[in-house]
Amino acid sequence: MVFFGGASVSVVHACARDGRGGSPTAVTDDGPYGDDERRRVPGAAGASHAVFVSRGPEQDGRPVFSLRFFTSEGELPSCGHGTLAALGYLAARADTDSDPYRVTLRVGGRTFPGRAVRKGPYAEADFAYGPVELREPDPGESALVLPTLGIPPHALGPGLRVASVGRPRLLVPVASPSVLAALAPDMERLRAACDRLGLLGCYVYAAPSPSGRVAARMFAPSIGVPEDVANANSTACLAAHLGERGIDRVTVDMGDSLGSPATLRARTSGQGLRLGGDVLVTRPPLLP
C-alpha cells in the first residue's frame, strides 16, 4: 500500500487468471487533488492506471459511487478493468456479508449497476456495459496503422473494425495465437499514427475458438501504456463485434507476453452487454 496526499492507495489486481497475474490498478478515494497529482499516482503505485472513487447519496437503497480514471498521460473517459478493480475494492471496504455486493456507478455521463461476489481475497466482479460504436476503417487509417504493428500480410484476419466507447480504437484480427505472441510493434510509429488519427490504440486478437476463447493484446502508447495487461473496454468492443456474428460469450486471455496472465469475460444478450473478471483485493482500511 502507498500513500497519496495523506490517503491510502490500494493496488488491486484486476482480471486475474486462476489466482495469478491480473492488471495492477491503483484505487483510492478522491479528494481535492489537481489532475497533475492524479497523473502521478499510477507510477507511484507501480500501476498503469489509477481509479479515484467518490461516494454520493444512495439511490434506491444502493450505494452510489463516481469513478475517475487516470494514466500518466492524463484522464480517461472510462476504464473497464479500472471499474472492475473499483468494484472489488468497494466490496472489500464495505466489510459486509452481503453477497453479491451491489452498487450504482457513475462514469462520465453514464449511470449503471455493478456487483461483486466475494470469495476470500478475490471477488468476481461485473457490470452492465454501455453502447459500443462499430464501423469499418477507411483505407487511410489501415494504411497508416497496420505497418507499425509488424503483422505479416498473410497473417491478417478478416473483420478489421474501429470501435469506440468514448475514444476509438482499432480491432485487428490475426490468424493465430502464435502470430499474436510474435508481434513487436514499433511503438514510436504506432503512437504517431494513433495520435494523428485520434485513436486510443490497437487491440489485436486471434480468431476465437469454438467455445469463444480468445487471445488478445492491447497496444496503447498514446495514453502512456505501450502494452496493457488487461484492457476491458476493448474486450467489450470485441464482444460487441463478435455478437454481430452470433458469438454471445467470450473469454479473453491477455497479459501473457508481460508475464502477468489476465482473463476477462463478456457476454451479450437482449439486456445488453456485461463485462466481468476476477479481482484480487488487498483489503483497504475502513474509512469513517
Rank of each mutant, 00 (worst) to 15 (best):
V204G: 07
T148Q: 13
G255H: 07
L238C: 08
G270W: 08
D253P: 00
G56R: 06
P288E: 13
D60W: 04
P77G: 09
T28W: 04
H154S: 14
G201N: 05
D30C: 09
R245A: 15
T83E: 03
P137E: 08
L242Y: 05
A207M: 11
G277W: 02
L156T: 10
P288Q: 09
P168F: 08
G276H: 05
A116N: 06
P32D: 15
S8C: 14
D36Q: 12
V279D: 05
L134Y: 08
R102P: 00
T263F: 01
I151R: 09
S234E: 12
R115S: 09
G166A: 14
S54W: 05
E133M: 11
V179A: 09
L238W: 11
S48L: 06
P153M: 10
L258S: 05
Y122E: 11
L156K: 11
Y129N: 14
P152E: 10
F70E: 04
A44N: 00
T25F: 02
S66T: 12
R106M: 04
R62M: 10
D95Q: 09
P288D: 13
T251D: 02
R39V: 07
V279T: 01
P24I: 10
P63Y: 03
P284H: 05
G224F: 08
P177A: 12
V172M: 10
L273G: 03
S269V: 06
R118V: 06
R249H: 13
G6C: 04
A262Q: 05
V107D: 01
H13V: 00
G270R: 05
D36F: 08
V27T: 00
G74I: 06
T104G: 00
D278V: 15
V165N: 15
G259R: 11
D97I: 02
A85M: 05
A50K: 08
G114E: 01
F112K: 02
V165D: 12
R249F: 09
R217V: 08
D256G: 01
L258I: 06
V41L: 13
R38M: 15
L258N: 08
A181S: 15
A125H: 00
G201C: 10
L197W: 07
E124N: 03
G243A: 07
D30K: 04
F65Q: 03
F65K: 06
L87R: 01
V165F: 11
H49W: 07
D29E: 14
G212F: 09
R93T: 07
